[in-house]
Nucleic acid binder design. Structure first.
Lengths: 341, 341
DNA sequence: CTAGACATGAGGTACGTTCCTCATTTACCG
DNA sequence: CGGTAAATGAGGAACGTACCTCATGTCTAG
């Protein structure tokens, strides 16, 4: 038997097409009893609305905005590229997309950008930003206006966002810890470098990393995190110091942004390839470093998947459809030289 | 400006809707010159056919069959479950799906199954089977009948299949080699066990594994592959032998099916957790073993991704659409205890 | 010059849905 | 019981595309 249509429902329920339509689209003017009759028929026949036909009739447009940080990070660049690519594909059917870039380190700019969004001409927003009370408020405003809101890559757990698309950073840190311990042989000191420990992402990763180090590799020592604040010179001096004065250091964990300066500094110091270096995010730089054996591993999330997922989830929320969790779960990927493709 | 429609094309090209339709659907009875005019208009306006509207009008059905091996393997089970799950989702819009199971170790059965397919009532076939000349011929027949054919999980490179959806097993073997060498500390012997070395998948994995072992970990010794032919007793005796007589063995690589008996045997022998054991395919069994630290790592491919990809690719070939490579590339995933979710 | 083949146009119906309007029926209240 | 409001029915147009028929226009060969 073919898929049932609204006409079949009407016949089955013994009502007219118009009534079925009123029920399905939650329009007023139908008795409870009739609503029940229609719903029963829907159940019985297993009717599912043809979203594409519905979108056609309704001339549906999904107007989405991606609010992304703009900075020296290659991560954002790859993300934007992936967005462009996805936009040209089937997934972006009936989607009108706009990207808003905000300076990464300006907490006020992000709020201004969110406040400036014209909620009347928008159906959904994807946000990648650190969480602040102001950001939470701005998101509450978007939700009140009926928009779908998803957090991308970095979660906004205390905001009213509908969904988070990205990895669990605690697990990511734990994964790195396990890998570091195993690769380094369970002995020696590990240095953790990061751009800044102020972000929750960094904190969570560090937390997970330490947990595993402590429980699984008690013979190893994890040194305090060193913050480099986007400053290549600072990074160079940190690395030089390690190379000269800390012979016990066997591993290096680059927790966030700023992989490029780290790799440069290591190469400069002539220690590239001798330490177990693990970094986050697969970018052209880290890719190359993996190939040269300068990085032992990269912990990453697939940005293509990330943006496609964001688009699908935004649509689902706009249509009040359920989302296919298994498809939207972003995996913590471990990339070595050999599964780099 | 909104997306152009066929009407816009007709206006732009200065022809009627009927002619535009004839050109777009490659129907006969249009002069070369007119075809060029229409195509020029399509180019100029950047027209893209609305596949969903087209499918609606055409009452399109995608009738697909998945031909899958039936055996003691948990892999096939997870694959079928994923297929069921995907079938309920958007991806399977207008798809009518059937699964055909064939005994895994009967090369004739697969050919019989492929020959039995009614090509008139079918639009595409996804096949997971070892390649033989007869299978190649059967696929050639399907292609001649105009069907879309994809190989899933295990490639059929010399057949006429349109596409392969799965991982590169040479790279998978290389990845495992790198991981094994790193985890085991570059010293000692490694045992390789597999159900059978007759499959190309096994051969390629072994090849890749050996390549990396030789180049990156020359101090390690890889022992000859041991085949267990689906026989738990044989597996148990192999493991017992290793535990008792081969103290130099530090690592174990389970290359294909039969992880369950291996893990059972290891537990039996009391050596679970002491060797670096790496296996393929994430299943309930291997998942549990990771959690118990009995497996150091699992090399796998996401079966959900696999089947969704197969469905998308089959559709694309049916519609002669281009496929979005980045989305269809199946990654070689490294799963540790910590990124297991 | 004309028959016949071929090219093109005009217009309609359909797909499954949405969203109208207008008419009719039903239920409830006093 | 009539009056009124609410519920329902009937039907149509539209979305973008496919596919059909029939009429008309144009070219070419004889």
């Amino acid at each position: 038997m073919n898929k049932p249509t609204v006409h079949d429902i009407a016949k089955e329920a013994g009502v007219s097409l118009a009534t079925v339509d009123r029920v399905l689209n939650a329009r007023p003017g139908v008795r409870e009893k009739t609503i029940a009759k229609v719903n029963a028929a829907v159940e019985r026949l297993g009717y599912v609305r043809d979203t594409y036909a519905a979108n056609l009739a309704r001339q549906r447009q999904y107007r989405f905005v991606f609010v992304l940080p703009e900075g020296p990070s290659q991560f954002t660049e790859t993300l934007k590229a992936a967005l462009q690519e996805a936009y040209a594909s089937q997934i972006a059917d009936r989607v009108v997309l706009r990207t808003v870039s905000v300076p990464a380190n300006d907490p006020h700019a992000i709020v201004r950008a969110l406040r400036a969004l014209d909620t009347d001409r928008l159906d959904g927003v994807a946000i990648m930003a650190p969480e602040t009370p102001q950001v939470r408020d701005a998101i509450a405003r978007l939700k009140e206006a009926g928009l779908a809101v998803v957090a991308v890559a970095t979660d906004l757990p205390n905001s009213k966002r509908d969904y988070f698309i990205g990895i669990n950073n605690l697990s990511a840190g734990r994964t790195t810890g396990l890998l570091m311990g195993r690769f380094a042989g369970g002995q020696g000191e590990v240095l953790v470098v990061t751009n800044s420990m102020r972000s929750r992402d960094s904190l969570e990763r560090r937390l997970g990393f330490d947990e595993v180090m402590k429980s699984d590799f008690p013979a190893m020592t994890v040194l305090p995190s060193i913050e480099t604040y986007d400053d290549p010179a600072r990074m160079a001096s940190v690395i030089a110091d390690v190379v000269e004065n800390r012979p016990g250091v066997v591993g290096l964990y680059s927790m966030g942004l700023g992989n490029a300066p780290l790799l440069d500094a290591l190469r400069e110091a002539g220690r590239a390839g001798q330490l177990v270096v693990i970094a986050h995010e697969l970018t052209p730089k880290t890719r190359e470093a993996l190939q040269r054996n300068e990085l032992a591993a990269v912990i990453t999330q697939n940005v293509g998947h990330l943006v496609r997922s964001a688009l699908r989830v935004l649509r689902a929320f706009c249509d009040e459809q359920s989302i296919f969790e298994a498809q939207e779960r972003i995996r913590i990927e471990i990339v070595l030289r050999e599964n780099l493709y």
